[in-house]
């Protein structure tokens, strides 16, 4: 019992095995005398156990061949584009961090807006008119990088986005881009193309607080939007197809989107 001025700092040191052995007994006595500190110590011990348990499985996973190959000098030469893709997910993680706190508040306040239908359809049509006409710069991320496209857009718009497979309708994914939605929200645009070069786009956003559905065409003509609004997400399918065809494609796309969001 040479020391009696323990503090919270010693809880960390004790936990990390950095407390000198001769102080251990005095420390334990101090914990007993300070229920609040004892409870804190117990929580940290439990958190550490949970952390270790959460990552314990990694040690048992087989080592991926590509990592072994690097060490053994058998790795194929990578193109410069490969370098360091992992930081993209690091960026997403930073967002997750902030989103975890900010989203909580936003979720409670809710977003009450009334004229959702027209606004959604107009924005979806405007995006389609601008980008579907672009041959080389229609999308920011091409379909060849589909996994990244989905992860990126999902993280940005706050919905789990799975790009629908519209091959049965004759449409293949071209790629996607991030767009503004509403006053300060974000939307994902997915662009599809058929064999004749006809394009349709899907416009998906989490910025929706009403339930509605319908079709919309600007008074001046142009492409039509088939849209659905639900609480928490909204989707519009835009194109210049015959109405019945567009409706079929839209239903198929919508069904897959909803399945993806709630998966």
């Amino acid at each position: 019992m040479t020391r009696h001025d323990f503090s919270e700092r010693d809880i960390h040191m004790a936990l990390d095995g950095e407390l000198p052995g001769e102080e251990r007994m005095a420390y334990d006595a101090w914990l007993e005398a300070n229920p609040e500190m004892k409870a804190r110590s117990a929580r940290y011990i439990a958190d550490r156990a949970a952390m270790r348990a959460a990552f314990a499985g990694v040690m048992d996973e087989p080592v991926p061949a590509r990592l072994r190959q690097v060490v053994l000098g058998e790795a194929p030469v990578k193109g410069p584009a490969w370098r360091s893709r992992w930081w993209l997910s690091a960026a997403a993680a930073v967002m997750l961090a902030l989103g975890g706190l900010g989203g909580y508040v936003a979720g409670i306040d809710g977003i009450a807006r009334g004229e959702g239908d027209d606004q959604l359809a107009e924005q979806a049509i405007a995006a389609h008119v601008i980008y579907a006409a672009e041959k080389r710069h229609a999308v920011e991320v091409p379909a060849s990088d589909k996994d990244h496209l989905q992860t990126w857009l999902s993280n940005r718009i706050g919905l789990k986005l799975v790009a629908p497979d519209l091959a049965a309708e004759g449409f293949d994914l071209v790629g996607g881009r991030l767009l503004p939605a509403g006053d300060q929200g974000k939307a994902a645009m997915l662009l599809y193309e058929d064999a004749k070069g006809e394009r349709i786009s899907l416009y998906i956003t989490a910025e929706s607080s009403e339930t509605s559905k319908g079709t919309y065409t600007a008074e001046t003509g142009g492409p039509e939007a088939v849209y659905w609004l639900d609480k928490g997400y909204a989707c519009a399918v835009v194109g210049s197809l015959p109405p019945e065809r567009l409706s079929d494609v839209a239903k198929n796309a919508y069904g897959q989107l909803v399945a993806g969001i709630s998966s």
Binding site: L98, G100, T151, R156, G158, K160
Partner: peptide, 10 residues
């Protein structure tokens, strides 16, 4: 740039 529920999105 933040998602609302990135934990669920990932």
């Amino acid at each position: 740039m933040l998602p609302l529920e990135a934990g669920e999105a990932q």
